[in-house]
């Protein structure tokens, strides 16, 4: 490098400048790694299997009536029963539809308002305290008002899911943007980026990990609020299945609905987690 004609020394820099300790590991990270970690899958399934065994033992011990605690197999047959007459798919379908539409609307609004509040100290001063106060309202408290204003159709249910999804997304994005990496933002400014370009090319990518954790929290809270919405004034959906089975004494369907909610919530999180992994593969 001390010679004046430095441009001629093509490729010599690999030898003149040792790559840091990260380089070797990073090259390994670039290789495809389809290897499933079976041990972690087995570890994750261990507890459910134990709980299933305890459940079976408790149900067959005679300490509880089948109306209180039906055995696992009767819950499975309830699943088969509802799947057989097709009503299972209707309930799951309508619930998933409400969550997706409500989440899209709530997360979208949360993203927009979070971005504005995160970027402008003035807007934050006016808006943030009121939003924080609204956030403290419990999900069920919204239901009577939404029914009064929006009737008993899809409107109030989707709106409640949207409210649930809105707050985690809004909170994480406004906080993350307010504390975006000042060094990178300054580089963006120094290289002529302003306004929307600075936001899109530097600030949002730099807070992408926070955006994803906000989205995942928002989706989870969307499912929580969905059940609140479907418990009241509905005739379809997994939340409706909970109240309906309670009223008709079908504890097997009640337990099945709970397990389905857990499974669907987890499935949604896994899907979003896969998207996150893909999008953030080059982040630190």
């Amino acid at each position: 490098m001390t010679s004046p004609g430095t441009t001629g020394t093509t490729g010599s820099s690999e030898h003149t400048d040792e790559p840091g300790p990260a380089a070797g590991g990073a090259r390994r990270a670039r290789a495809p790694r389809p290897r499933w970690r079976w041990s972690s899958v087995a570890a994750a399934l261990a507890l459910p299997v134990v709980l299933l065994a305890v459940w079976q033992a408790a149900a067959s011990s005679g300490a509880y009536s089948t109306a209180q605690l039906p055995p696992p197999l009767s819950v499975l047959s309830a699943l088969g029963e509802l799947a057989g007459d097709g009503s299972l798919w209707t309930h799951i379908g309508i619930s998933v539809q409400r969550v997706i539409i409500g989440f899209a609307a709530g997360a979208g609004l949360g993203f927009l308002l979070g971005a504005v509040v995160g970027l402008s100290a003035r807007v934050r001063a006016f808006v943030a305290p009121s939003v924080a106060a609204l956030r403290a309202v419990p999900s069920l408290a919204w239901v009577p008002l939404l029914v009064l204003w929006l009737g008993i159709g899809e409107g109030p249910k989707i709106t409640l899911v949207a409210i649930g999804s809105f707050f985690p997304v809004y909170t994480t994005i406004s906080a993350a943007l307010a504390h975006a990496d000042a060094h990178l933002v300054e580089v963006g400014r120094a290289y002529g980026l302003r306004g929307g370009e600075l936001l899109g090319r530097i600030m949002l990518p730099s807070v992408a990990p926070a955006i994803f954790s906000g989205l995942r929290l928002g989706l989870a809270q969307g499912w929580l609020f969905l059940v609140a919405a479907e418990l009241i004034a509905s005739s379809m959906g997994l939340g409706f299945l909970l109240t309906d089975s309670q009223n008709t004494g079908r504890t097997d369907i009640l337990l099945m609905a709970i397990l389905l909610l857990a499974a669907l919530g987890k499935l949604c999180d896994v899907v979003l987690g896969l998207v996150e992994k893909r999008v953030l593969r080059f982040h630190k």
Binding site: M1, S12, E18, G20, A23
Partner: peptide, 16 residues
């Protein structure tokens, strides 16, 4: 003198 490293990510290269 980094012609061979265009497709590397920053965390894959040394500080220099």
């Amino acid at each position: 003198e980094l012609q061979g490293f265009a497709d590397h990510r920053p965390r894959q290269v040394s500080g220099g």
